[in-house]
Nucleic acid binder design. Structure first.
Length: 623
DNA sequence: AGCACGCCGACT
DNA sequence: GTCGGCGTGCTC
């Protein structure tokens, strides 16, 4: 009985993105199965290539000239059917190759880790039953939820969201099911691990991150395939194996770290939405402030919105363009002198966001690309678009001296040191991030996303640059600002004062009651009127050169139905932006893929190793 | 990606 | 007459 195996290769090449059939020789038949790594002869040279078995079956009538598998490399399966179905679905949605998702799904193999794993028996883990909690009880009634945890949560041992998710995971575990939790970055991962530890569930955790040693990662991968547990990690973990998966959770889905920056440009939320459908699991999307995509999913009835019970918060809106008015200054002063920590969120890093000429007040720009200039944390003048350090020439009016217009976090930190000489001023920004602090008489100046945790929580959180954050001319400016504010506010203690500087009208009213959900919902309604994402989707295709770009434009005009897809004009060179409905997504991805594969093959101007077309099926940055 | 096949010009 | 240029296309 001839046994035939389907083998896939980890490669971005569309020509190799399919299953190749190989005969399984008799002597290998009892050591091979789905998910094993194998060595097979491939190509005209007959050189050996490593692939993974993606199907194996008895074939009474195998087609002629099949080659044989040379060797079985991994003694254990390293890839599951669940993972393969996910890779195929994601590749199709993203107009990419299954082969380029295999490397995310299968970590590098370590022989010793494999030997060690085979010799240890999977130990039995027992964990106490989970307590009843908001999220858990909701999941008993609903399959898919959006969960908003507590704000002002900084004095808890572990954050509410993490504890609630762990309760839900433990409940799955008790009924013999795995869960998968995807977090945006290592700071959030550390919080999640604290919740696991606090609930004595560390032994059920299976961590999937590239930060640990390679052999450890491989060991955890093998564990996840064979044992039920709580799988967690950063965005790559969305593709991790999980035995008998019952629950998928993603924390802060709107965070940009959930977007993969290499082809095929998937993001955790969309991958996990697909995975929840494929594996028929429960799904939790959780965040302090919802993404617009979440609002859409609630709107169409896909997600049920639930919330932890919120205690009333003391929120103050100051209507001043000054960052600190007299009252705020006095409050901070009092708090600091009684040893309480205060957080100042400043929109931009560095010393100045912009420079103006002292005499004519003109905003100075980069002499080479005319981009905006700023003063970075080391005090150097830099261009925001070409990133280069530069010397400003004289202004058009003839003067050369400049004055900073809007101070950045470095300048504010310096200023605070002068204003509050008895306090310890700590400065944290994206490049130089402090994750947690113990001491108490603290004034922390931080840029959005870089706020450190402080033991016991902040007694005051000041959102100092609210209007300028919201005023940025990007589609997602409001949504992203709200999320950055909400995350900062979550670090406060429950009796804290939250101050928003300079908010007005509806937004001021909404923030007064920390109604983040309503604020994003309103933003969503505005976009609905304009027909912008996430009501529709926006794909971008960037060509490597103008000639191939023109060919693409012609081909798209011919083969993409104009009643289903809108071509948008954009300023970026060699970029095509397409607007389309969710229901047309798969079809469009298929058209774009076959079209670009064909055009790439006939391209004259391609350089070796270079991609002629880069398709991003959900480009969040084009507008 | 490799690697061979193949159809042109320059050479002993 | 044949050596080698790299354009084209295939790999189970």
């Amino acid at each position: 009985m001839p046994l035939v195996a389907q083998v896939r290769f980890s490669s971005p090449l569309p020509q190799l993105d399919k299953e190749f059939d190989y005969l399984v020789p008799d002597e290998l038949q009892n050591q091979i199965g789905f998910g094993h790594l194998v060595e097979v002869p491939f190509g005209l040279g007959g050189k050996l290539k490593t692939g993974v078995v993606c199907g194996i079956a008895i074939d009474d009538n195998p087609r002629e000239k099949l080659l044989s598998i040379q060797e079985v490399i991994s003694a254990l399966p390293v890839f599951t059917e669940g993972q393969m179905n996910l890779c195929v679905a994601v590749a199709e949605r993203q107009a990419g190759a299954v082969g380029e998702l295999l490397s995310v799904s299968i970590p590098k193999r370590y022989q010793r880790a494999e030997a060690k794993f085979e010799n240890t028996h999977a130990s039995f883990i027992s964990v106490e039953a989970a307590e009843d909690a908001t999220l858990l009880s909701s999941l008993q009634k609903n399959q898919k939820v959006y969960f908003q945890p507590k704000f002002l949560d900084g004095s808890s041992v572990a954050p509410d969201w993490a504890l609630q998710i762990v309760y839900a995971c433990l409940d799955q575990f008790a009924s013999g099911k795995s869960s998968l939790v995807v977090l945006p970055d290592f700071a959030e991962l550390a919080r999640f691990e604290r919740a696991l530890e606090h609930l004595s569930a560390t032994s059920t955790g299976i961590r999937h991150t590239s930060s640990e040693t390679g052999s450890n990662r491989y060991l955890n991968h093998l564990t996840a395939i064979t044992r039920v547990g709580i799988n967690y990690g950063l965005r790559g973990a969305a593709f991790a194996p999980a035995k008998n998966l019952g629950l998928i959770a993603i924390w802060d889905d709107g965070d940009e770290s959930h977007i993969e920056q290499t082809a095929p440009y998937w993001n955790s939320r969309e991958v996990l939405l697909q995975r929840a459908e494929l594996e028929q699991t429960k799904l939790v999307i959780a965040s302090h402030s919802p993404s617009a995509e979440v609002i859409r999913l609630i709107d169409i009835g896909y997600l049920k919105h639930i919330e932890s019970i919120q205690e009333p918060a003391n929120v103050v809106i100051t209507d001043l363009s000054d960052r600190l008015d007299a009252q705020t200054f006095a409050l901070i002063s009092t708090l600091l002198s009684s040893g309480k920590p205060v957080l100042l969120q400043i929109a931009n890093a560095g010393w100045a966001t912009a420079l103006v000429c002292v005499s004519c007040k003109e905003v100075r720009s980069c002499p080479t690309c005319a981009g905006p200039v700023w003063v970075d944390p080391s005090g150097k003048i830099r261009c925001r678009s070409c990133k280069l350090q530069l010397e400003l020439s004289t202004c058009t009016c003839g003067k050369s001296s400049t004055r900073p217009t809007r101070l950045g976090a470095s300048a504010i930190a310096k200023q605070m040191e002068r204003s509050f000489p008895n306090a310890t001023v700590v400065h944290s920004n994206g490049e130089n991030r402090i994750t947690s602090i113990k001491s108490h008489a603290l004034l922390v100046v931080a840029t959005p996303g870089a706020e450190p945790e402080v033991e016991g929580g902040y007694s005051c959180v000041l959102i100092a640059d609210a209007p300028s954050m919201v005023g940025s001319p990007r589609l997602r400016a409001l949504e992203q600002s709200l999320s950055k504010w909400a995350n900062a506010i979550s670090l406060a203690s429950s009796d804290s004062t939250v101050i928003f500087v300079g908010l007005r009208d509806d937004l001021a009213q909404q923030m007064k009651s920390l109604a983040f959900h309503e604020a994003v919902q309103e933003d969503y309604k505005d976009r609905e009127d304009l027909g912008l994402p996430p009501i529709t989707r926006l794909a971008s295709i960037i060509s490597s050169n103008p000639v191939d770009h023109q060919k693409l434009l012609d081909a798209v005009a011919e083969s993409v139905p104009s009643d289903k897809v809108r071509m948008l004009g954009v300023t970026q060179p060699n970029t095509l932006v397409l607007d389309f409905a969710y229901s047309f997504g798969i079809e469009l991805a298929n058209i774009l893929k076959s079209l670009t594969v064909k055009l790439t093959a006939s391209s004259k101007s391609k350089k070796p190793g270079e991609r002629v077309y880069r398709i991003n099926m959900d480009d969040g940055k084009v507008i």
